[in-house]
Structure formats: structure tokens, C-alpha cells
Amino acid sequence: MNEATPLTLAALGGVVSERSGVVNIALEGMMLMSAFTGYVVAFQTHNLWLGVLAGVLTGVLIATLHAALSISLMVDQIVSGFVINILALGITGVFFKGFLQEASVAGPGVLPTWEIPLLSKIPVIGPILFIHQPITFAMLLAIVLIQFLLFYTVWGLRTRAVGEHPLAADTVGINVYLVRYVAVILSGGLAGLGGAYFSLQQIGQFLPNMTGGRGFIALAAMIFGKWKPLGAFYACLLFAGAEALSGRIQITGVHIPFQFLGMLPYLLTIIVVAGAMGRAVAPAADGKPYRKA
């Protein structure tokens, strides 16, 4: 569940953004930047919660940049996302060397573990669902919330419509740009929370490139989960399980090179994208800028 937390948050971000028709490969960069700013703010203020907030806001901010580039300026969405990823890697790397490398000895610690009274005493599922650190709880809530928002609310219907056929949405008076901005920014907030996980919940430190490509695995999970929040979560559990497994296997000394297990998420994604498990169909207008006549 812990490994799955940032993956799921980022994958949910991907689902929201792509359902509106904007490809978001910047999830990786958003998480990394958020992990960084979250840590810096928590370090300076000695308040982990302010750190988490800073992480979310960083995601929102970068998402706004991605939205402006890809929706308003119609920069290719992949290019925009790629630029953001490189930028995040560079900025966090430089500042880490400049300020954090020496200072990170006494960090702000990690978020506490919460135990929900009574519910956590339920055998088997109690500990799985009800004993966690805060960001993991937030992730579980986010799955339910996004599933509800996307498939049961007016906002969700409009968002999906815009991702499938923006011109049709426009002709019934829906503001395509607004819908896409909101979706991308929400996506950034989710990824930002996922980023905060690394530095504030997992290890209480910032390390260069600590997200290690999980933004991309999240995208894979999103595809694997057929652009559905719950589906993406299950995929994340699977990928996180593979990751955890590779750790365990090394300890037990079975001779499978750990790189092979590390490949598993990517391998599964290739199989899914190739259509082996029923075709995964992306929203029809995914990745296509909308230009008003």
C-alpha cells in the first residue's frame, strides 16, 4: 500500500487530465518538484503539514504552466511535459547541491502513522485499510472521490465529453478551455501530493531524482487501468507489488536479477498497450489541442 501511494496519486492525476484530453507526462516532474519544495518548506518551518501543502501547491503551479503551454499556446503536449520533467530534474538537482546536501542531516522527520480506532481492529482488512500515514489515507479517499466526480457528476460528464469530442462540447456551450484547465490543475494537485509522499512520508529527506521514474509507471498504470480511477489503483497495486516483491526476493537470496522484476511494470504496460488484455481505448481527443474556429 505504501509503494502504491505515490503511484496511485499520480495515476489519478493522469486519469483526470487525459479524460479532459490533455496528455500529462509531466507527472514525474511535478512529483519531483513537489517532493523538493515540500521538504524545503517542512525543513524551514518545522511543520510537516505546511510541507505537504507546499507540495500540493507546487504541483498546482507546474500544472498551470503545463496547461498554459499545451491548452492556450497549443505547444505539443508531449513536448511541454518533457520540458517540465527536464526542468524539474535540473532545478531540484542544482538546489540540492547548493543547499540541502549539508543541511539535510537533521531533517523534519516523517508524517505520523494513524490508526483509525475500532476499524483498524477488524481482522485482515483492518490493518490494510485503516493503519496508514496521512498521504496514504488521502490517496484512498482520492480514488473514491475522483471515481465519483468523473462518472457521477456534471463536472465529470463535461470533462469526459471534452476529452472525447471538444467541438461537440463547444457547440452545446461548454467552455472547453476552462474544463481542460481545471482538469490539468487538479491533476497537478494530485501529483503534488504524490510527490510530498517521497520526502515527507517515506524517508524524511530529499534526494536527487528520488521519484525515479514513478511518474511514468503511473502513466502505465493509468493505461493499464483503462483511464479509470479504480482500474488505475489496481494497476498501481500490481506494480507496487512487483516492486515490493523484487525487494523480498533479493533478501531471500533467490537468484533472479532484481532488474528483471524492476522491468515488470513496463513489461506489463507494453503487453497491455499492445492490446493483449482487451483493447485499452484512450479518450478520442487525448493529446489533441483544441482550436476554436
Binding site: L157, E164, H165, L167, A168, V172
Partner: peptide, 14 residues
Amino acid sequence: MLIPPLTVAENIIL
């Protein structure tokens, strides 16, 4: 100007 994966009712009320 219809959205194929949505239902008739959803398309009409959109």
C-alpha cells in the same frame, strides 16, 4: 456533434 461512448440521454443533456 455526438460523443460516441456516452449514452443517448447523456449526449442530449450535455
